[in-house]
Design a protein around this nucleic acid. Sequence first.
DNA 1: AAATTAAACTGCATTTTTTCATTTTTTATG
DNA 2: CATAAAAAATGAAAAAATGCAGTTTAATTT
Lengths: 234, 234
Amino acid sequence: MITYESRLKLYNCDTCLFKIISCKYIQQSEFEKLQKQSTQLRFRKGESILKQNATATHLVFLQKGIVKFSVEDESERNQILTITRAPSLIGGANIFNQGINMFSVFAVEDCECCLIEIPTLKEIALSNTSYMLTLLEIITGMFKNSILNFISLAHKQVNGKVADVIIYLSKSIYNSNTFTLSLSRKELSEFAGCSTENVIHTLTKFHKEGILSVSGKQIEIRDFDRLEKISKVG
Amino acid sequence: MITYESRLKLYNCDTCLFKIISCKYIQQSEFEKLQKQSTQLRFRKGESILKQNATATHLVFLQKGIVKFSVEDESERNQILTITRAPSLIGGANIFNQGINMFSVFAVEDCECCLIEIPTLKEIALSNTSYMLTLLEIITGMFKNSILNFISLAHKQVNGKVADVIIYLSKSIYNSNTFTLSLSRKELSEFAGCSTENVIHTLTKFHKEGILSVSGKQIEIRDFDRLEKISKVG
DNA sequence: AAATTAAACTGCATTTTTTCATTTTTTATG
DNA sequence: CATAAAAAATGAAAAAATGCAGTTTAATTT
């Protein structure tokens, strides 16, 4: 018989950031209700964590890894809404979409996640409004980021779009001027909203101009100021 | 002395939709707290109802009229996030943005609004979770619409973008195949994310092809199926 | 109602982007 | 480790979008 204790433990729940945040607002005993029915899972690069249009049964606390939020439209074209790295709480937006996942979430690197049952969380949050407000702030923060991302892409041309994507990855995902991309050129283009070839051309151009150093998946920002200027003028 | 009773009354609060929705969840006496400090205001076409980056002090219940949500980016370019018509609750998203308005709201037609103080509403909502959930569903619904709008625009070219905008206006704003635009060509282009000339060219083309009948602000959709096909293929 | 201003429209040259065909490089697989 | 498959890169032609200059039309003001 598989009991809670015998389940795979990828990491220790006691040091989990979601627990630490939660226990600022709710009792430890309450959190243990959540913990008991939560499942730790590992996802390999490329696997889907949440599927667009499926019933939203779980929230996901991403403990380790990087994920992309994407939607597929009628014309089978993919659009990446945003990219997020651990630690972060994902899938919350679906709570407000009649319980249907608005978009898919894919592992872009190997991920370790904790799946939290929505009904249990909802029940606890309903009896503790400041906890609820905190969760909502996290959830709407993601919305906000996606919107800001779209705005910045909407009126820019490809130079600006690619600059934006590189700046975003550097600042918000890898926290460094030098990083090894976990996204393919195709995925970059789905994030930037242009053709794959256009991303490749632009990266090569930035490389030649000494703004970036690009060698396959290895990227270094050599002239951040110039990159930001390109992002601003579009 | 200006008392509550002596204030301008644009419409009767007793038949207000926001009151009807609210009183499903909260006591009439509670709602009257909100009502007492709320202000009815009229906005002329073009006036700003909420200003981007200002402190978010009020939620706005739009009783009559049409508004646009817009953001101005660094390069002084405007982007319209979405367009909404009465009745609707607007400005809610700002609650989760450290109390700063994420975007501006402008009257696109003469509007009648009711300004509701956020602190009072928050206080009431905090003591009634199902009321809060309802408000949140309304608020995140707007987020959701903006994102869906952006997604549909992101990978499409101008034919598809303009088709999308016309379909949206027809279905969600004017509820008719024939309508008098309250937006300028420039605003349409800010909504679609392309140049003004391109919108004009495309509208003329659709007119020549018999898909639309365009005469200044007067628009009629003559071939909805073809318009939807254009929207789908992009 | 005339004059002024703003918005809408037109066509064209320039720039940007996409698409396609092909080559090179990297990654995965037996 | 060789081979197949996928991803990345390149160049060029075709398509699309922008920006400009000038015209027409509509809306505002005096």
